[in-house]
């Protein structure tokens, strides 16, 4: 039994279809519990008032925006090294989810920033890095869409993802250097004295877990779609070949 068995599209489809209902339900449950808990059963912050509660959308989506790219990096590497088609298709499936997460993080950030900083947008390093990440996502998706041959597309996008990751990290540091910003420090971290208070962090954890499960569910679902699309494409090509 090894994880590579799931590189077989059939096996992957069969397994994910079994776990899909659980994933959908548990992510929906976690997100609703987390959001209801966060929105209605936490106190207002003494400085930020009730605006602070957007954190329950902002932080989980920002988390997934970065981790989606990280997942694409890993699956791209698996494709480049082991050439498992499911891996490449999973990377393709994750990109639109990642771009939406990035967009949610940017929009909720703007909505939060308006009352707090008095502006919708500032060229703060964190905000700017997310905008750059958004551009990377767009380029990656556009390249997938532009190429007909699926294997070529998988190869090219994988290399773009690898090179892009390096440049994304570089951009992060460049942007930090370029402008020290307004954004507060990380809301949650393991080694910091001052974190978000427990009343806020507990529902936040629930929301984050919900977003992680939602992301996994969406990626499984979309990968299944990609696999079927690939299969149809292959069958059509095969018919042409036989004719």
């Amino acid at each position: 039994m090894s994880i590579w068995e799931y590189a077989n599209p059939k096996k992957f489809l069969a397994t994910t279809e079994r776990v899909m209902p659980t994933l959908w339900i548990s992510s929906a449950a976690l997100i609703s519990v987390g959001l209801v808990w966060g929105f209605f059963f936490t106190p207002d912050d003494y400085r930020q008032g009730s605006t602070v509660k957007i954190i329950f959308l902002h932080v989980p989506s920002a988390l997934m925006a970065i981790n989606a790219w990280f997942m694409m990096l890993v699956t791209s590497l698996v494709w480049v090294i082991r050439r498992h088609h499911v891996s490449a298709l999973a990377a393709r499936a994750a990109a639109p989810v990642g771009v939406v997460m990035t967009l949610i993080a940017l929009v909720t950030g703007a909505i939060w920033g308006q009352p707090m900083w008095g502006t919708w947008w500032a060229w703060d390093p964190r905000l700017t890095s997310f905008l750059v990440l958004f551009l990377f996502y767009l380029g990656y998706i556009a390249l997938w869409e532009a190429i007909d041959n699926p294997d070529t597309a998988a190869d090219l996008t994988s290399i773009l993802c690898l090179v892009g990751s390096v440049f994304a990290v570089l951009s992060r540091y460049a942007v930090n250097f370029w402008n020290q910003g307004l954004h507060q420090g990380a809301s949650l971290s393991l080694d910091k004295e001052e974190n978000v208070a427990d009343v806020f962090s507990n529902p936040l954890y629930v929301c984050m877990a919900g977003f992680v499960l939602l992301f996994i569910a969406l990626v499984f679902y979309r990968t299944g779609t990609e696999i079927r699309a690939r299969r149809i494409k292959a069958l059509i090509a095969r018919e042409r070949l036989e004719a």
């Binding site: 551009l135 767009l138 556009a142 390249l143 532009a146 773009l160 951009s171 540091y173 942007v175």
Partner: peptide, 27 residues
């Protein structure tokens, strides 16, 4: 090199290359 085989690669090329130019431009 990424877009060499594409018929209308010009615009895509800009979209791909611009984000990679960010650090160079900043510094």
């Amino acid at each position: 090199a990424l877009t060499v085989g594409l018929k209308r690669g010009g615009l895509l090329l800009s979209l791909l290359v611009m984000p990679l130019y960010v650090p160079t431009l900043i510094f």
